[in-house]
């Protein structure tokens, strides 16, 4: 197995606030990595640095061995190989569900409209929203919108799917339908990096769980180990707080 995504010593600061203090992370093909950690531990920032929505202050991000943090690299071309799903869905409100999903395949990847539509319909069927193709996003529930956002990200056949706390803005009863889609996508072999607060889901789906604390990966390994028998005191402390909140 080769590393699809390789994060090496990434540092990122916003002004005086150092969010990432040298993060290392390696993601192999078909692997699912869950990033856990408290608010402000750097999970989202790490994903945003990986998708080049932020520039790193030091370190490297390698995608299929290519240093994408090199300023000479065409950032648009790199983003074409990634799929990103956001906490707040960020669907385009002036476009129908179908147009949201076919936008990147047609405009960025130059595929024919008919071709892109056909695949979009297949994707929408997969996530159970085939009948919503003609609707506008604000007519859908949060869970439906987030599933469309996943379909939109998958439509470009990304090398890696980056999921940034995709269930945090959802009502508890809608979380399940979104996680079902993610589980299915993972089962089909997609490489996934997800920041999440859903420990139970991380335990079931992830191959590796990384606990981020104060800008570094404090502990990582199989979910049974990190979530079950954490070595670090900070990890135990974090998990006990999560259990107290009823989230595990």
């Amino acid at each position: 197995m080769s590393a699809v995504l390789d994060v090496r010593g990434v540092v990122k600061a916003f002004g005086d606030n150092v969010v990432l203090r040298g993060v290392d992370l390696s993601v192999d093909e078909h692997q699912v990595v869950a990033l856990i950690g408290g608010s402000g531990s750097g999970k989202s920032t790490l994903l945003r640095c990986t998708s080049l929505l932020e520039t790193v202050d030091d370190g490297q991000v390698l995608l299929d061995g290519e240093d994408v943090t090199d300023p000479r690299v065409d950032a648009d071309a790199v983003r074409r190989r990634l799929g990103v799903v956001f906490q707040a869905f960020n669907l385009f409100p002036h476009m129908t569900v179908l147009d949201n999903v076919t936008l990147a395949p047609t405009v960025v990847h130059g595929r024919s409209r008919a071709d892109a539509r056909e695949e979009a319909h297949a994707l929408l069927t997969r996530i159970g929203l085939a009948d919503k193709a003609g609707e506008y996003p604000d007519r859908l529930s949060g869970g439906q919108q987030q599933r469309v956002a996943i379909a939109r990200a998958l439509a470009v056949h990304p090398r890696v799917l980056l999921l940034d706390e995709i269930t945090s803005a959802l009502d508890p009863e809608l979380v399940g339908e979104v996680l079902r889609v993610v589980r299915e996508v993972a089962a089909q072999g997609m490489t996934i990096v997800m920041a999440t607060h859903e420990m139970g889901f991380a335990k079931q789906v992830a191959d590796t769980v990384c606990f981020l604390d104060q800008g570094v990966v404090l502990e990582s390994g199989p979910p049974e180990q990190v979530l079950g028998e954490p070595v670090e005191a900070r990890t135990r402390q974090f998990l006990s707080r999560v259990i107290d909140a009823g989230r595990l």
Binding site: D76, F86, A88, N90, F92
Partner: peptide, 15 residues
Amino acid sequence: SQRAAARSLGLSHRQ
């Protein structure tokens, strides 16, 4: 966030 979503799909600034 709309811009972020579009850019992360690979659309250029102009698109």
